[in-house]
Computed example of a mutant assay.
Amino acid sequence: MTEIAWDDFMKVELRVGRVLSAGPFPQARKPAYVLEVDFGPEIGVRRSSAQITALYRPDELVGRLVVGVVNFPRKQIGPLMSECLVTGFHDSEGRVALCVPDRDVPPGTRLL
């Protein structure tokens, strides 16, 4: 494992966001949803593609808190311009489980 300095970690803007909408992304190469996530007044609403279809349905994602990287450059994914990276972990079967706060915190709160 490569060690990083604290300053390296501080460059990554990991923020809490609330999912406003989630829907199918049929143009994606792997099964995915398009998410709209509200990261609070400072950052606003961002769109992302998320390969989380194995463990989540769109209707159960709306209103949930997620953790996202908001300072990556935008990335074109098929017809979608992804504006953030919603974080998660692969389980033993390779399915993605979302990284989420265990308490209600305001959208935009930075992970430290």
Rank of each mutant, 00 (worst) to 15 (best):
residue 96 V to I: 14
residue 32 A to H: 03
residue 53 T to C: 14
residue 78 G to Q: 09
residue 44 G to Y: 12
residue 89 F to H: 11
residue 104 D to R: 10
residue 37 V to L: 00
residue 97 A to D: 12
residue 75 K to Y: 13
residue 21 S to Q: 11
residue 33 Y to R: 07
residue 88 G to K: 00
residue 6 W to Q: 15
residue 98 L to E: 08
residue 83 E to F: 10
residue 107 P to K: 10
residue 67 V to N: 05
residue 5 A to P: 00
residue 61 L to T: 12
residue 79 P to H: 00
residue 17 G to T: 10
residue 26 P to W: 13
residue 108 G to L: 05
residue 71 N to K: 02
residue 81 M to N: 08
residue 1 M to V: 11
residue 64 R to A: 05
residue 44 G to S: 07
residue 83 E to A: 00
residue 27 Q to K: 14
residue 31 P to W: 05
residue 76 Q to G: 07
residue 17 G to K: 06
residue 104 D to M: 04
residue 18 R to E: 13
residue 82 S to I: 09
residue 91 D to W: 00
residue 20 L to T: 14
residue 29 R to P: 09
residue 103 R to V: 10
residue 7 D to Y: 15
residue 15 R to V: 04
residue 51 Q to H: 07
residue 98 L to R: 03
residue 48 S to P: 07
residue 8 D to W: 09
residue 94 G to T: 07
residue 68 G to Q: 06
residue 22 A to L: 05
residue 82 S to K: 04
residue 58 P to H: 07
residue 38 D to S: 07
residue 26 P to K: 13
residue 13 E to S: 13
residue 22 A to G: 03
residue 56 Y to H: 04
residue 66 V to G: 00
residue 79 P to D: 05
residue 95 R to K: 11
residue 34 V to M: 02
residue 34 V to F: 05
residue 80 L to H: 12
residue 31 P to T: 10
residue 90 H to S: 12
residue 50 A to W: 03
residue 102 D to H: 09
residue 75 K to F: 13
residue 102 D to C: 12
residue 21 S to I: 13
residue 56 Y to N: 05
residue 74 R to I: 02
residue 32 A to C: 06
residue 54 A to E: 08
residue 35 L to P: 02
residue 2 T to E: 05
residue 20 L to N: 06
residue 11 K to I: 05
residue 83 E to T: 07
residue 87 T to S: 05
residue 108 G to C: 02
residue 78 G to K: 12
residue 51 Q to F: 05
residue 57 R to F: 09
residue 40 G to A: 06
residue 43 I to R: 09
residue 73 P to I: 04
residue 58 P to R: 13
residue 74 R to S: 15
residue 72 F to T: 02
residue 99 C to T: 11
residue 94 G to H: 04
residue 39 F to V: 01
residue 13 E to H: 15
residue 67 V to E: 03
residue 62 V to M: 00
residue 112 L to T: 15
residue 101 P to D: 01
residue 19 V to S: 00
residue 108 G to E: 04
residue 37 V to Q: 04
residue 81 M to K: 14
residue 29 R to S: 11
residue 45 V to Q: 04
residue 84 C to N: 00
residue 90 H to T: 15
residue 62 V to K: 03
residue 102 D to M: 07
residue 86 V to Y: 00
residue 70 V to Q: 03
residue 7 D to T: 14
residue 8 D to P: 00
residue 105 V to F: 14
residue 35 L to W: 07
residue 54 A to Y: 14
residue 65 L to Y: 15
residue 102 D to P: 04
residue 70 V to R: 01
residue 95 R to Q: 08
residue 7 D to I: 12
residue 79 P to R: 03
residue 20 L to F: 11
residue 30 K to S: 13
residue 88 G to V: 06
residue 103 R to D: 06
residue 97 A to P: 01
residue 50 A to Y: 01
residue 43 I to H: 04
residue 71 N to A: 02
residue 66 V to W: 08
residue 62 V to C: 08
residue 63 G to S: 11
residue 109 T to Q: 11
residue 4 I to T: 13
residue 58 P to V: 09
residue 90 H to K: 15
residue 89 F to D: 03
residue 107 P to H: 02
residue 41 P to A: 07
residue 41 P to S: 01
residue 50 A to S: 03
residue 5 A to N: 12
residue 104 D to Q: 12
residue 51 Q to L: 06
residue 22 A to V: 10
residue 4 I to F: 15
residue 73 P to Y: 11
residue 69 V to Y: 10
residue 103 R to Q: 13
residue 6 W to S: 11
residue 12 V to I: 15
residue 4 I to P: 06
